[in-house]
Amino acid sequence: MKCPNLDRATLLEARGVSRLYGPGKGCEAIDICLHRGEVLGIVGESGSGKSTLLRLLAGMERPDAGQVVYHSHEGELDLYAIGEARRRALLRMEWGLVHQNPRDGLRLGVSAGANIGERLMALGERHYGQLRAAGQDWMGRVELDPRRIDDAPQTFSGGMQQRLQIARTLVTRPNLVFMDEPTGGLDVSVQARLLDMLRTLVRELGLSVILVTHDLAVARLLAHRLMVMRRGQVVETGLTDQILDDPQHAYTQLLVSSVLTP
């Protein structure tokens, strides 16, 4: 039997990060350790601090206290001790961010191909033919018709826009991807296909992902490990199946039992 590698190298760490907008609003003293190739799900109700935590981890909002440490090829980087230039370069080159609303992540004024090529151009790709080939390749990978490469994102449906956003993010093969409710606002059949595609891509590319969602089904399908948040604090953490099948904390039990099943 093939044994899973249990002590994989750490990629991203949060050490006691806090960001409070008010008592119980935001997130408080959170420790996270994300390993390479791991998908970590953060679940919880609206207002539990999931998205704040994601923003802190992704370098978009400075925490009041604590450290976020990224283990890059060059060694440990304290995200908020390095300069803004380095932090933005990191977000542009080594990380990716998938927004809940594809309109936040896409440039709506330019074609699908230009959207996919943007990150490559930011990395210095200056060959139009290669940019276009990459665009067509990635449209195929996210199950979009490559012939639509010159169409504007507005002409795509919601699910297609979300897939376009994913292609645009993954085209540079980032080490670490942050996803904020990637399937929010999509109907269930589109959701299922998107999840299927995401799962394949994550496995193929060996991505490390931090996934924020309120949808336990999404977490079950994608995440290896789960963190349950409530009122800015982590109430329970563990393997996905363990948490969903045998919740220990009262709030997790409530959360799991309140999922609607048809």
Partner: peptide
């Protein structure tokens, strides 16, 4: 951060 300047040129060629 000048990558986006080429987005406009890309769009022209497309």
């Amino acid at each position: 951060e000048y990558g986006v300047m080429h987005v406009k040129l890309y769009e022209d060629i497309a």
